[in-house]
Simulated assay, not measured.
Amino acid sequence: MQPSTDIPETAPDDPRLARWLRSEPDEGKPGVVLVGFPSDEGVKRNDGRAGASAAPGQIRRQLYAMTPDAEDSDRFIKLLEHTNDVGDVPVSGDLQADQLTLGTVIARYLEQGIIPIIMGGGHETAYGHFLGYAENGFATSILNVDAHTDVRPLKEGRSHSGSTFRQALEHGSQCAETYLVAGLQPHAVAASHLAFIDRHRGHYLFRDETNITSISGLFHSHESDRLMATFDMDAVDQSCAPGVSAPCTNGLLPDLWLTAAYLAGRNKQVTSFDISELNPEYDRDGQTARLAALTIWQFMLGLSQRS
């Protein structure tokens, strides 16, 4: 797995993240890794717009061109010195096999105490992400920021981007201790989906209930030692994120979305993070890709400020 971008080198007095993310960590083993999962087979199965498989490369282009935090550059650069982009997980189109492969990759990092940041791909990414916990036998809560619950049944016995959290909650390992989801659109969620979450002692917030206070509360509404964070870009209003697999009318505004990513980074219980459903084929001037990259930047900012 090797990342590739065509972001040029920058001047010494104007460093960009590419300087660190392209290089091996200064002290050997990284504390944070970026991993791409260029799959959208699950989106196709769920009747979404194909194209999310191209997302990791576009996210890198935008992220690599960003600068370290100008307000507290020392701490941000210290994090970058322990961060490595390890490239994309190779995918075959066999979704179940690809998710297992992603799980094995993530399991290795979790076992070493390394925080993986996963760039999807469709939201089937999150199930492969979860399998990393299951492979290690690590119990975790799952926090999802999303317009949809993604607890639909399998289709003809096959997983898809909308079945992710049903699969996690029903996994034989029982490693998914609870499920927390914020940003739901009432016109895009069936009552049976909410009943399923209730049966599994989960919590959910609709779009008009989702604010900084309520999201902060979700971070403290579980008893797990670990928290897997997953951010689906279709939660963001389509005026700000047109390039997604399922555009969202009246979605979250970027300031709330980005603050949620920052809070996830700050929270010591968050041991992994993924972002999914960027679809470059439908993007406008790279607007959604930049937002995806800035979401990761905000998460990293939070990580850099963990005490």
Rank of each mutant, 00 (worst) to 15 (best):
V32M: 06
L102P: 03
T104V: 14
Y64E: 01
G93N: 15
V105P: 01
R45T: 13
S53N: 07
G31C: 11
T101A: 14
Y109Q: 04
I77R: 01
V105N: 01
S23P: 00
P38I: 11
R61Q: 10
D14F: 13
L100P: 04
I7R: 02
G42R: 06
E71F: 12
D14S: 13
I114V: 15
L95C: 08
G93R: 15
R49S: 04
A11S: 14
D13I: 09
I115K: 09
K44L: 15
N46G: 14
G113E: 12
Y109E: 06
S39N: 14
L102I: 08
E71I: 10
P38Q: 07
K78D: 07
I117H: 05
L63Y: 04
I118A: 04
R60Y: 02
T101D: 10
N84C: 13
D13W: 11
I7T: 03
D72V: 09
D13M: 08
W20E: 00
A107K: 15
Q112K: 12
V86H: 02
L95W: 07
P30D: 00
L100I: 13
I106G: 05
A52S: 10
R108E: 15
R22L: 01
G31E: 06
T5L: 03
V33Q: 02
L21I: 08
D88A: 03
L95D: 09
R75W: 00
A70D: 10
E41S: 13
V105D: 03
P15E: 05
F76P: 02
I115M: 14
K29Y: 07
P56R: 01
H82G: 12
G121H: 00
Y64D: 01
